[in-house]
Design a protein around this nucleic acid. Structure first.
Lengths: 209, 209
DNA sequence: TAGATTGTTAATCGATTAACAATC
DNA sequence: TAGATTGTTAATCGATTAACAATC
């Protein structure tokens, strides 16, 4: 178990985690791959294959214990621990991430926001201070930061990224509509919101003819 | 051409569109599948296969005309036309979508925002009025709406969705962390932001341990 | 025990890559 | 024309599904 895990499987993990939390909240104690498959619209076979990438969490003749499997997958995802974040850019997206309480609820805590606009520097967004992006390197020297949320304008995104990487940041949640140039050791997840709208537009056309 | 197009191809289309716009902005007139592949980190073969789902836009011995291919893919995506949107929920996400100018720049125009909070109703977000969600059905009866952006709390997301669908909305950009129950004719694109963070967390663990 | 359901191997399906004739 | 590169068919690879022995 837990050798190579394909991207396809990784992308499904948060879905498992979400459905299992829902089931747990509903008071469901036990579920079979069949039952979970019906809910998630996946085959029972695929669910068993996916779960067995990480270990045999089920019992023959019984299925899976919901709370137990949810906890296992939470640990696999790493959401059982706190992640310290900083947000780059106090624009619409940066603000939305900073003000959301669903991220802190899952252990993703924002330490600080950085921006270049003198009008924003020194203000607070929620309880989080907006600092001068010029002080970013200094901040990173003095704080453990797990994740940087990149929400700056396209034009400065690569430059800010370079500064993050130079100062030891190794995980970036990227909202800029660009594929950042990064060394291999840096992990990135792209959001690319505008692409979702484009795909929606495409599918609408496709559906109508 | 343009028969069945796989999800895998559809997901790559916005990337093609984005790279081609960048190339055009850089003044690049012509590019081969080889050259585009190097930029996008895809194989030349895959690029030719993908593009030929929609037609032979290239010339042997030459490659592709950047402006022409960009325009073709824009039309395929449907971003050559205006899409009218409404936003459900004037929270952090709803506000961010409403205030962004990158969406209107691609023809995605927001007509109105709906919320249930009396303190928000009657205010404006940017130039867009916040209206009472109770008036949603009436609004939909009197306006052409192409896309609904669902950014309400999890608890009310299915209920609001049902109202949208009953009143003829057939495309939903969903930010709620749930798989909505929808009739087949309704197109949905899920954003599920929190899943991106979870995947990032997983990959960080994977990289270190 | 008998029935249910897993974990896992084998079969199938679909997507990606390679190859190459057509042709600009 | 010769060289380059497409469009397209064939080969390969990987992911999903099916099957079934193991076992709770």
């Amino acid at each position: 178990m837990a050798g190579y895990v394909s991207e396809a499987v990784i992308r499904r993990l948060p879905g498992y985690y979400r459905y299992l939390r829902t089931l747990e909240a509903e008071g469901v104690k036990q579920i079979s791959s069949q039952g979970l498959g019906e809910r998630m619209k996946l085959t029972a076979s695929q669910i068993r294959q996916d779960i067995n990438c990480f270990g045999g969490f089920g019992r023959q003749g019984y299925g899976y214990n919901v709370a137990e499997l949810r906890e296992h997958i939470g640990k696999i995802l790493g959401v059982d621990r706190v992640h310290k974040m900083i947000i780059l850019g106090a624009g619409n997206i940066g603000r939305a991430v900073a003000l959301s309480d669903s991220f802190p609820a899952s252990g993703f805590q924002t330490l600080a926001i950085f921006d270049a606009d003198p009008k924003k520097i020194g203000t607070n967004i929620g309880a989080i201070p907006v600092q001068d992006v010029e002080t970013l390197a200094g901040f990173l020297a003095n704080h453990e930061v797990d994740i940087a949320v990149l929400a700056v304008p396209l034009e400065t995104s690569q430059q800010v990224t370079d500064c993050l990487v130079e100062n030891g940041v190794s995980a970036i949640w990227n909202f800029a509509p660009v594929d950042l140039k990064l060394p291999e050791k840096v992990t990135v997840v792209n959001v690319h919101l505008e692409e979702g709208l484009e795909i929606l537009s495409f599918k609408m056309k496709q559906m109508n003819g």
